[in-house]
Simulated scan of single mutants.
Amino acid sequence: METLNFRFENGSRKIAVPPQLVGVVSSGNLEVLIEPAPLNGACEIEIRTAANGFGATWQAVMSDFHERWQLADTRICINDMGATPAVVSLRLDQAAETMTTGAP
């Protein structure tokens, strides 16, 4: 297992609903826990992944996600069992959509 941490400053979109869990950890998939947190406008992302050595790919996917959503005061935890970048982006977008619209 590898743990990666990313922090993106100066987000512009705050969330204020209870924490949400999106996805299921199983073979080739991941889960995303997203929650509000007092981070001075930042978004922190922690990734626990079974696929070691893909830090640059994770950095690119997380940077792309932050550019799309600009989340502020948000903590995201990802548990990954080898999901592809496309699945990671999908799950992150689902989690952000849930938090910004309040949908279950």
Rank of each mutant, 00 (worst) to 15 (best):
R13D: 09
G55S: 14
E2G: 12
L90C: 10
E44C: 07
E35M: 11
A95I: 01
E67P: 02
E9L: 06
P104K: 14
V88I: 14
L71P: 04
A72E: 08
V32G: 02
N79L: 15
L4P: 04
R68E: 12
N10W: 00
R13N: 15
R91D: 01
A96K: 04
A50L: 12
V61T: 12
F8A: 01
T101A: 12
R7A: 06
S89Q: 13
M99V: 10
N10C: 03
L90I: 05
T101E: 11
S27C: 00
L92I: 12
P85C: 10
G41C: 09
A50K: 13
C43Q: 05
A83D: 04
M99Y: 00
P19S: 15
P18M: 15
Q94P: 00
T49F: 08
D80P: 06
T84M: 11
H66A: 10
G23C: 09
L90W: 03
R13T: 15
M62Y: 01
V32C: 09
N5W: 05
W58D: 03
Q20N: 07
A50G: 11
P36C: 02
F6G: 04
T49R: 07
R48A: 15
R68F: 04
L33D: 06
M1A: 15
L21S: 15
T49W: 06
V17G: 10
T3P: 08
M81W: 02
C43F: 01
Q94N: 08
L90V: 06
D64E: 14
S89Y: 01
F54H: 09
W58E: 04
V87R: 07
K14T: 12
E31Q: 15
N5F: 10
E2W: 11
F65D: 01
S89M: 12
L92W: 07
A51P: 00
A96M: 10
A60R: 14
G53Q: 13
C77Y: 08
S89N: 11
W58P: 03
M81L: 11
E44Y: 00
S89P: 02
R75W: 00
E44N: 07
A16S: 13
